[in-house]
Nucleic acid binder design. Structure first.
Lengths: 355, 355
DNA sequence: CGGAGCATGGAGAGCGCTCTCCACTACATA
DNA sequence: TATGTAGTGGAGAGCGCTCTCCATGCTCCG
């Protein structure tokens, strides 16, 4: 007596998935023709075209991505790489980073471009140099066709490695070291200008600024814009204190600034977290915000809303920037010879209570 | 005269990537042996082992994932699926969702499990039924080995479709409709108990609750826990008003609640956003928080920190839950016959100023 | 000393797909 | 009728890998 050799088709896990071959047989054509129809290439008789699609429906065929990318050398995937220089991979900083809306807004922006084109988004986090090396290898091998890179550290070597490896990439944020890779960025200097003009418009005359770390390009640009706008209005000089983008550094910086300019009535802070700290510290000194000192922050992060009074701040169009970075990567994948490009977005002042 | 046929190796894009074959040649062994070494299987002479790794280094070999998964039928990828029932894919709700730390915390939790094992995370957003169908097809074809699913809508059919298709999956949050898929969840009822006991501990006697939508399991559980804990303390009845988890609904609900219980001195609200709205509305009625009415929220979201006074609230261990869901998927991929499992996490009360 | 038994490495098939060739038909042109 | 020219579909190679078989060489015991 013979036993059936075919496995039970009831369990979808063991059921053999239909292949191109099966569709071809069902449609009575060759594998190649089915492939042509599915990929919409070349001249296929419209009659056959219809028959093939019918067979696809009937068999429930879904193309096998692995097989396809093995031959096309395209994975249909773009990686979103978060690169940071932490000592170990489970750094608490990363936890904070993920919990920050910043990350989600970028994901949303990138997805809005990728999804309509049926391209996958693969998330990659690299904290160590070792991980970066592996990532470059994997991308070079075609694990993804390109990468949108979030470099969180100014000394990050990843952009350069990606360039060396010839991987299609775009950076979110101008790289600290010039590197021939396209990037999107915010016109940080324009943000500084916005802050300056708002404070001057309010009638502030004794201004000051808490800057970000001097080696971060965005910090420099915010300062430059602020300074130039003030200069245009005749303010040749104002005190600045460098902060580290953290709450504590904002507090310290404010106290130092007050020492150097006790009459301060207008303050620009290079990010919201430090601005929030500054506002708290001002109130601790019995200075009212905005009546005694008007404060403008930067980022429009959740810190701006947590602060009391809520912060007037400079806002990134982050989703749009992320979307554009995805477009840049896609363009580069299509045509690697494309010239390196940068797209700069304009910030917007969000007026709340602090200024 | 002969021209060199080999392409210039200077451009990494056109340079042929080394394959197993190349490594085998360099090591003077067969392809199969190299494969064995790289995958760490079976008995390979330690001497050859060393030689092979040396050849891997020398050639800069990186395995081709597509080729490998074509034969192993494993992609080495887990999908993080966000499933919602929106009319079109670019719903503003999605924008808000991505900007919410909730999303990032889950990504972080899932990554913490996947990364050490070298497994990719692919992000998938499905808003329409059509997209859901395609997703199930793609996953069935092996685009990913399994999926962590965030179902944002109680009527979502995706979990059931995944089960039908035999795809390894785990849900974050108990499904509204029972379905044989593992899930992680918060002990929402325990959260209700925490809130009740905190309010009673403060001496509140005239209690009330603003619940979430009745059809959302989490809402029901929060109410149940709160009710049972109060009952244990002799509070047989308290007024409840149903809200919709939105700011506006919280406002409206509070006003209705005050009408039914003007003497209210203790309030439990099923999420922070509504709680924040309730606090504002209470202050608008000249009722002090927490002195006149103590308020406990739920989620420990950014709304809890935005509120003034800041909210005492019930906190999810969201990262841990997400990590566990990833573990469940991985376990199921390894052994599809595993029984369906649920892992319930305990919430924690975060005491701030509102109660 | 012969053969069983085991450790080890190689040969080769084949995963599902794309894409280059090539064959064939149909029609126009010489 | 012989030849040129599209347009169309099929045959088949091969992408890079894993894994099952099989051959080989060795040890060990009767």
């Amino acid at each position: 007596m013979l036993r059936a050799i075919k496995p039970a088709m009831s369990d979808p896990r063991s059921a053999r998935k239909p292949t191109l071959e099966d569709v071809a047989e069902a449609a009575g054509v060759s594998r190649a023709t089915v492939s042509r129809v599915i990929n919409g290439v070349r001249n296929v008789d419209p009659k056959l075209h219809a028959i093939v699609w019918q067979a696809v429906d009937a068999t429930g065929y879904v193309p096998n991505r692995a097989a396809r990318s093995l031959v096309t050398r395209r994975s249909g995937t773009v990686a979103l790489v978060v690169s940071d220089a932490v000592s170990h991979d489970d750094d608490p900083f990363m936890r904070r980073f993920f919990a920050d809306p910043f990350f989600g807004r970028i994901v949303g922006g990138v997805m809005s471009v990728l999804r309509p084109r049926g391209i996958q988004l693969a998330l990659q986090i690299v904290g160590t140099d070792d991980a970066r090396g592996r990532l470059v290898g994997d991308l070079g091998q075609g694990q993804a066709d390109g990468a949108v890179v979030l470099s969180l550290h100014p000394d990050d070597t990843l952009p350069h490695q990606l360039y060396e490896a010839g991987i299609a990439a775009a950076l979110v944020g101008r790289p600290a070291q010039p590197v021939p890779i396209s990037y999107v960025d915010l016109a940080n200097d324009a943000g500084g200008v916005l802050a300056a003009e708002h404070l001057i418009g309010r009638g502030c005359t004794r201004l000051g600024m808490i800057t970000g770390p001097a080696h971060v390009p965005a910090s420099q640009d915010r300062l430059t814009g602020f300074r130039q706008a003030l200069a245009r209005h005749g303010h040749a000089w104002f005190p600045t204190v460098e902060g580290g983008f953290t709450y504590e550094s904002g507090e310290t910086a404010l106290l130092e600034l007050l020492e150097r300019q006790p009459e301060l009535d207008g303050l620009f802070v290079a990010n919201d977290v430090m601005a929030q700290a500054a506002v708290m510290a001002l109130r601790g000194r019995e200075l009212r915000v905005p009546d005694d000192v008007a404060v403008v922050g930067f980022d429009d992060s959740s810190a701006a809303l947590d602060a009391r009074p809520q912060l007037t701040t400079v806002r990134h169009p982050l989703e749009d920037m992320a979307a554009e970075s995805a477009r840049l990567v896609l363009a580069r994948i299509d045509d690697p010879s494309l010239r390196v490009e940068s797209v700069i977005f304009d910030p917007k002042l969000v007026v709340r209570q602090s200024a």
